Simulated assay, not measured.
Amino acid sequence: MKKLLNTLYITSYEKYLSLEGETVVISEQGKECARIPLHNIESIVTMGYAGVSPALLGKCAEYGIVISFLSRSGRFLAHTVGPYNGNVVLRKTQYRYSENEEICTSISKNIMTGKLFNSRGVVERAIRDYSSSLDVDKLKSVSEDLKESISNIEKCKDTEQLRGVEGEAASRYFSVFDNLILQQKKDFAFSTRVRRPPTDPVNAMLSFSYTLLNSMTTSALYCVGLDPYVGFMHKDRPGRTSLSLDLMEELRSVFADRFVITMINKRVINKGDFFVKENGAVYFTDDGKKKFLQSWQMKKQNTIVHPFLKEKVEWGMVPYVQALLLARFLRGDIDGYPPFLWK
């Protein structure tokens, strides 16, 4: 099993990354700030504009360290990767399957089953843990709706119908998302999912966590030799990591959404960690972003038992495991793609 290493997050737009020997050197305005050995790093996520030296880019490519470039607001810009792992036969199979609607639908059904199963699990866990503080009847109603949506997945004849089921289920799930926020209600009210741009702190946290999850999933797909840009449910679109979006669907609720709720309910993040731009967009302050990323890194290191492998893995390894299972299916080693069904 691949070993989970640290992700280096650069949140200041003035930081410059360079290489000295086998070490990443972080500097600002010509002054050295920190040094981190490359052997401790599995990926780099930078939200700065000062840049990365060509030497470091080359060394990261050689070592298989993916560098993800985000805007200051957390919007994905680009990835840099080295030579592909795996083999061309695997990717040719992926491309061929992506053109077959029947196969795309079969894979997508498993992915959507995982997504809705896990979304329902988040609601059910809230009912179980905080019944005295919640509108239990409302949450149980949504839980039953999600259960019905899961059963409707098998009836779908193509990915277009699947997207319809998923969209309706997501709407029901987010209709009770505000109920899961038990602390700081005045500052972290949630009414609906708003993406570009986020217009409240909760949506800002969700968008940022999805970007981080997408980066993890993309790195995992590169590691196993799959093309992150060719998906099965999310169809091809220039510049979009469609397969990454496919694979992260089943992890959104149990990894990202629950993490956001925990950050609010445990008061790790507060209203002072955000600022509002003139157009109404809400984003993290630099200090808020640092707190969020520190907790995200700790979350990745927590150990769970993978529901399919029945082995202990770190949360941060789950995208890699799922990418590996997808690759095994495409190679014909297993009969179907087993989604991540968290209990």
Rank of each mutant, 00 (worst) to 15 (best):
N302A: 13
N279F: 07
K277F: 06
Y283M: 14
V282P: 02
D273L: 01
F292S: 00
T285P: 02
G316E: 03
N270C: 14
Q294R: 07
K300P: 00
K277Y: 03
Q297D: 12
N265D: 11
S295W: 00
K300N: 14
N265C: 11
L309K: 11
V268Y: 12
W315G: 00
N279E: 14
K289L: 11
I264Q: 03
V305Q: 05
N270T: 12
K271A: 10
K266N: 12
E311Y: 03
M298D: 12
Q297F: 00
V268N: 01
G280A: 09
N302S: 12
K300I: 00
V276T: 14
M298S: 11
H306P: 01
G288V: 05
K299G: 01
F274G: 00
F308D: 12
H306K: 07
M298Q: 09
Y283L: 15
H306L: 09
S295G: 00
K291N: 10
A281S: 13
D287W: 09
Y283G: 02
I264V: 11
N265G: 09
I269F: 02
N279M: 11
G288R: 01
I269R: 01
Y283N: 14
V276M: 03
T262W: 07
G272I: 04
V305L: 11
H306F: 13
K277L: 15
F274M: 07
E314H: 10
T285N: 04
F274N: 01
V282C: 08
K289V: 06
K310V: 07
K290N: 07
I264M: 03
I261C: 05
D286P: 02
V305Y: 05
E311I: 12
G272K: 07
N270M: 05
E314L: 09
K291H: 08
E311C: 06
T262D: 12
L293S: 08
M263F: 06
I269H: 04
G288I: 07
